[in-house]
Simulated assay, not measured.
Amino acid sequence: MIVTLIVAAEVSFWILLGLGLAARYLLRWRRTSTALLIGLPVVDLTLYALTVLDLRGGATASWTHALAASYAGFSIGYGPSLVRWADRHFQYRFAGGPKPLPSPKYGPERTRYEWQVAGRTVVSAAVTLSLITLLVPLSAGAAHFGTFAQWYLKLGLAAVINVIVAGCYSLWPKEAPAGVVVENGRVVTERTLADTAPARTPAERP
């Protein structure tokens, strides 16, 4: 049953997101759009509540219950940035908005971007693991703790790796290659060899 609920929650999430953006940019219904977008985390929290009810009803704990908890964690950690990403692309495609900028690749802007990603991952992992911990007493406690133990390792490792990557960019910022013009950490254009080569004097010309 949990797998079915997860699929239904995933489909509902994207439907609500699409309807929310369509209401905002195509129909100009901002209040309706806001209400629909607020419903996004509600979908994942409802999935978690149904997971709790499933375990309380005597269901055997499995990885699917932990996966359901991870949806709520993802929604809290990554949800706002995902909505902003979808908003920019929808506005560009259907409402004449500016073309979305790519993620910064170089300089301090890239470092800040990596720390933002690390922060979202840490928040997502912390929320997910907290929700999974709450499921343990509902699944016969320590008797089924092993069912969820691997999630502590995997999510904890993912958070640590993201923090290490961001730390590396702080210690060794990524600089743009020679000949690449960068603005706000993003590549604007690349100079050709003709642009960068020194001008020849009339005597040197054939």
Rank of each mutant, 00 (worst) to 15 (best):
M1N: 15
L5C: 09
V7Q: 13
A8R: 08
A9K: 04
E10R: 09
V11T: 04
V11R: 07
V11D: 03
S12H: 11
F13R: 13
I15T: 04
L17E: 06
A23T: 03
A23L: 08
Y25M: 01
L26C: 12
L27Y: 08
R28W: 03
W29S: 12
S33F: 02
T34D: 09
A35N: 02
L36N: 10
L37T: 03
I38F: 14
I38E: 12
G39W: 04
P41W: 05
L50W: 01
T51K: 00
T51E: 01
V52E: 03
V52M: 07
L53F: 15
R56E: 13
R56S: 09
A59D: 06
H65F: 13
L67S: 07
L67C: 02
S70V: 10
A72T: 15
F74C: 01
F74Q: 00
I76C: 07
G77W: 07
G77D: 10
P80W: 02
S81G: 10
A86R: 07
H89V: 13
F90R: 10
F90S: 04
F94M: 12
G96R: 10
K99F: 00
K99C: 00
P100M: 01
P100N: 06
P108D: 01
E109L: 06
Y113M: 13
W115F: 15
Q116F: 06
G119Q: 00
V123A: 05
S124G: 13
A125P: 14
A126V: 13
S130V: 14
L131Y: 06
L138P: 08
S139V: 04
S139T: 01
G141K: 12
A142W: 04
G146Y: 01
T147R: 00
T147M: 02
T147Q: 01
F148D: 12
L153E: 09
L157R: 10
I161G: 06
I161M: 03
N162P: 05
G167M: 07
G167Q: 10
G167T: 14
C168V: 12
Y169A: 13
K174Y: 08
P177H: 03
A178M: 12
V180H: 02
V180A: 00
V181I: 14
E183I: 09
N184E: 14
V187R: 03
T192P: 06
T201F: 11
E204Y: 07
E204R: 08
P206H: 09
